[in-house]
Design a protein around this nucleic acid. Structure first.
Lengths: 159, 159
DNA sequence: TCCCGTTTGCACGCTCCTTGCGTGTCTTAT
DNA sequence: ATAAGACACGCAAGGAGCGTGCAAACGGGA
């Protein structure tokens, strides 16, 4: 079992905020020496508690003006059809997130696009015509209140 | 205006995949020298094209078993009420993403929780009773096909 | 109390980062 | 056509950061 103590939590919280922190900076934040932070960080990476590090790019600066949520209903719920749909989703870079949900729709996709033409293209020329898909309904994001991938570690106690 | 050339795109693409890449590794990938990659990276950070670096933590390893999408309708659409709701969303760490959308609901939230009890607590004890909120409908994620925050830089041409 | 496994801080050799500098290229004005 | 300026490049050097070895400190069980 993976055990994460209070020091690990401080390190994880800090790296979640800034993935380029120096071991010395981590040490100052966590109250440890730099070498120890290095060792703990390596262990957390080894155990896949830290699954990776990523640069966060500005969609505005790079000209991605449209975010959309797309609800998709499948034509049939056969394993084959699901597989086809998953393969489709995986090869479309514009789809950042994809989930199957309880409730109305079979799947919800979150897509990032350059403009509405890009959304139209994705919905009408890629998703709709695909054999696995029965119906599609898209909602455009008007305002982004919050967008991060940070886990709420605050409440976690050492284990 | 921010200009991003083909070298910058290679650097951004690489850092989006691995935010801890060495300047030398970037150099090998982009076909530049390490010092030049350092300079370009600093410029991209300065211009906020790179808005930050983050460690990606494993929700499974840390015991977050539930992801939910929560559709929220506001009681009124007055500016005051919106403001109250936004403040609420901002101070709840379990809410990773929050958007206002076209279509049925006013807002959609994505929340990460330890278990269903955590979701129940968020929906019934925090969101529902809040004065700004009229109705709430939550959908639980059954399966995560894809989850990243990578922008589809593939298609971008130098500008 | 003693023992053993674990965790820690420190020191050191090695890698990596950044800045200064000289060179080559492209653009613009004469 | 040519001179001058701006820009991006690679190289080299000095300084910062990284990870491993090691000995000391700590903590739980016999």
């Amino acid at each position: 079992m993976i055990s994460v103590d209070a020091f690990d939590l401080k390190i994880l919280t800090a790296l979640q905020d800034d993935g380029r922190l120096t071991n010395q900076e981590l040490a100052d934040l966590a109250g440890l020496s730099a070498s120890q932070c290095s060792r703990r960080r390596m262990r957390l990476e080894e155990e896949k508690v830290i699954s990776g590090y990523h640069a966060d790019l500005s969609s505005e600066a790079l000209g991605f003006g449209v975010i959309a949520f797309i609800q998709v209903g499948l034509a049939t719920h056969s394993p084959d059809n699901s597989k086809r749909f998953r393969a489709l989703v995986n090869r479309i870079d514009e789809i950042q997130e994809a989930y199957s949900l309880t409730g109305d729709a079979d799947y919800v996709l979150k897509a990032v696009l350059r403009d509405l033409k890009g959304l139209s293209n994705l919905v009408n020329d890629v998703l709709m015509p695909h054999q696995s898909v029965a119906h599609v309904r898209s909602s455009i994001v008007l305002d982004r209140l919050k967008e991060s991938a940070k886990l709420p570690l605050r409440e976690l106690k050492a284990g």
